[in-house]
Computed example of a mutant assay.
Amino acid sequence: MRIFVFALLLILGPAAAGAQPVPDLGPETTPPSAEDFHSLPEDLPEEGGQVAVEESDPDEEKSRLEELFAGLAEADTPQEAERIARDIQLMWMDSGSATVDVLMSRAGKAIQLEDHALALDLLDVVVILKPSYAEGWNRRATVHYMREDFGKSLVDIERTLALEPRHWGALSGLAIIQRRLGFEDDALKSFKRALEVNPGLENAAEAIESLEKDAEGEPT
């Protein structure tokens, strides 16, 4: 992953280093949106809180996540899988800090209003306050992607996956960027990894089918 990111930064050149958009990706390329990364986890209710960053019990949280991922892999129905996936997303969204949760909620609202500059300002504070919070990096990666700053998005995706390798949103985001930039083989691997983690990802399954057909020379 790190090799891919650095190689991509070299390909994109100055566009990846700054806030400039990447070169034209072709006439069929549609503007990116949050939906390209699938739905973002819904924000937790905004509450007043302390400025101090409070740490949750990491062992208890890890144990609960392991249980949920095991249940997700063994879910008998799509409805059960969706419920478990939602529980995992809620755990990812809960930073353990009232301050960070409020910043994330406000960043989410800024994204909905397409105020990407404000969203980035808020998320910059989030990752400074709590660099161990994977969802902060993932949310910022999404905003960078929506601004077509794919180099910065990939850097934040890498950070997200370093903290939570099973983050299927980050894996899907990685695959989407790889596919948009023409790295179909890498995109296929990333989509498969995302689907392995969360078998209920219909968009990932469809992307895999499309990429495999393209590789075989079949029309999609």
Rank of each mutant, 00 (worst) to 15 (best):
E206G: 02
I11F: 01
P41Y: 11
E35Y: 10
E209S: 09
V102D: 06
G48E: 15
E61H: 05
L129V: 12
K130W: 06
H144G: 01
L65D: 08
L8V: 12
L68D: 10
G49C: 12
A19S: 15
L113M: 13
S210R: 09
D36P: 01
L195Q: 06
Q178L: 03
L211V: 06
E54S: 11
K109W: 13
G71H: 06
E184V: 08
P21R: 12
R86M: 13
F4N: 00
G200Q: 11
A19L: 15
W137P: 00
A7V: 00
T29C: 10
M91D: 07
S63Q: 13
E80L: 08
R86H: 14
E218S: 05
A19K: 08
P219A: 07
R139P: 02
E135D: 08
V127W: 06
E47G: 05
E206Y: 07
A117T: 14
W168M: 04
N198V: 09
E212M: 06
L120W: 07
Q178W: 01
A175P: 02
S97L: 10
D24M: 11
D94S: 06
L154M: 15
S153T: 02
G169N: 05
I177S: 00
L195E: 05
E74H: 05
I128R: 09
Q20P: 01
M1Y: 09
E67H: 08
L118Y: 04
E135F: 04
I177T: 00
I208D: 01
A204C: 15
T220S: 04
E184T: 07
L120I: 15
K192M: 11
L195I: 09
V143C: 03
A75M: 10
G136I: 10
D87R: 10
I176S: 00
L161T: 04
S210V: 12
A7S: 10
L25N: 02
A15N: 08
E209N: 08
G173E: 01
S33P: 04
E216R: 09
W92V: 10
N138Q: 11
E74L: 10
D101Q: 06
M93A: 13
V155S: 03
D36G: 03
E54R: 09
I176T: 04
Q89I: 07
K109H: 14
L40E: 03
E148M: 07
T220N: 07
A141P: 02
R159C: 03
A98R: 10
D87V: 09
I111Q: 03
A187Q: 00
G48L: 13
A85H: 06
E66N: 11
E114W: 05
R159M: 11
A204I: 09
R106D: 14
D185C: 00
F37T: 04
G18V: 13
A15K: 07
V5D: 05
A175H: 02
Q112D: 15
R106L: 14
V127M: 05
P219T: 08
L188M: 04
L44Y: 09
D101S: 09
L171D: 02
D36L: 03
D186N: 05
R106E: 15
A207S: 14
D185S: 07
P23I: 15
Q50K: 09
V127Q: 06
L40S: 01
A73Q: 14
A134E: 14
S39L: 15
G96P: 05
P31D: 08
E212A: 02
S56V: 13
G217C: 07
G13H: 07
E82P: 01
E164I: 08
P131I: 11
L90P: 00
R193Y: 02
S190L: 03
E55S: 10
A19I: 12
F6C: 04
V155Y: 01
